[in-house]
């Protein structure tokens, strides 16, 4: 969670063993209280809208929708990988490929690849091997830097490919708030928030596989 106020942001990363649904909304109320604020004093709610843990995303979005509907506020949604890119070191030489990388479980990661501030791939899901192949196809040589919990989880693989793994410079919520403060994200009513899961449901994946098998 993070509070953006008058050009400064106070972010807090989550490391509590309790689930998101148990922690929200009390932790948000507590964070606001620490800064002398209450929920009705918030002008805009920002939410990270995927990809990521399906359940975690829904808990976050539903909570933000509840706040915004109760108070008649707007919601800005920010793609997870955009926010993570925003939290990566900016002092890199031109041509460096930056890869925000989120653990997608099941041996996969959600990722995108950026060069000189341009998102080259959009959000993707795939194995570490597929990610490396994607980046190599875009930038056969040169510096590659990756960050995020997917970067940390498969650090040995990235190092083996000659990539650098760096820690984010700020909490994801902090980065999302800064991005919106700078005019990024998608602003609208709470109804308008659309999650980007990137990965389809298992039912859809299995059905497509079966249909493909029949065609074969």
């Amino acid at each position: 969670m993070a509070i953006w106020r008058e050009g400064t942001s106070v972010g807090r990363a989550g490391d509590d063993p309790r689930s998101h649904a148990e922690r929200l909304p009390l932790e948000a109320v507590a964070l606001l209280a620490e800064h002398g604020l209450t929920l009705p004093e918030i002008d805009t709610f920002v939410v990270v809208a995927g990809p990521g843990s399906f359940t975690g995303l829904r808990v976050g979005v539903a909570a933000v929708q509840g706040w915004a509907m109760a108070l008649g506020r707007s919601v800005a949604s920010v793609p997870t990988l955009d926010a993570l890119f925003r939290s990566m070191p900016t002092a890199v030489e031109q041509g460096t490929v930056l890869v925000p990388c989120v653990d997608g479980l099941r041996g996969e990661v959600f990722f995108s690849a950026w060069r000189d501030g341009v998102d080259l791939t959009g959000p993707q899901v795939g194995s570490a091997t597929e990610l490396i192949a994607t980046v190599v196809a875009l930038a056969p040589a040169g510096r590659v830097v990756t960050s995020g919990d997917g970067a940390m989880k498969y650090a040995d693989t990235w190092h083996g490919a000659g990539w650098e793994v760096v820690a984010p410079t700020m909490a994801l919520a902090d980065a999302a708030a800064r991005l919106v403060a700078d005019g990024g994200g998608t602003m609208g009513g709470p109804h308008a928030v659309r999650l980007n899961y990137v990965r389809r449901t298992d039912a859809e994946i299995v059905r497509e596989r079966e249909r493909g098998g029949r065609r074969a």
Partner: peptide
């Protein structure tokens, strides 16, 4: 549980906001 979580999260937030 995934369905329940949407309603629970929304309801708790709506209530907390007011």
């Amino acid at each position: 549980v995934g369905s329940l979580l949407v309603g629970v999260s929304f309801a708790k937030a709506f209530a907390a906001a007011r």
